[in-house]
């Protein structure tokens, strides 16, 4: 497994999208690759921090609607 593949599997693991064998191969790679170990460590911490923060976002549709309403008022203000 190359480092690029290892990082890709690590990214997929954060979203629970990596298969069992991909994870096995990643773990074997991590035994001898320090750079990927660091990447995996930080990547996992990032996932945890985002989970702990309970951060939320406006969904796309809501944002689009907000934008439409806002642009209408912005246009009216110009005249």
């Amino acid at each position: 497994m190359s480092c690029d593949e290892a990082n890709h599997t690590c990214d997929k693991t954060q979203y629970k999208e990596a298969s069992f064998w991909e994870k096995v191969k990643l773990n074997i790679h991590l035994i001898y690759c320090r750079a990927c170990r660091d990447y995996t460590k930080n990547n996992t911490k990032l996932t945890k921090k985002i989970k702990v923060s309970k951060i939320e976002c406006l969904d796309k549709q809501c944002k689009e609607k907000m934008k439409r309403d806002f642009e209408k008022v912005l246009e009216d203000q110009k005249f």
């Binding site: 990214d11 930080n42 990032l46």
Partner: peptide, 21 residues
């Protein structure tokens, strides 16, 4: 998508690393 996610995660981790990791 995965390329974008990888770049974003790398940048986010580097940004948060100083105070939060």
């Amino acid at each position: 998508l995965w390329v974008i996610i990888h770049r974003a995660r790398t940048a986010m981790a580097a940004c948060l690393k100083e105070n939060w990791f």
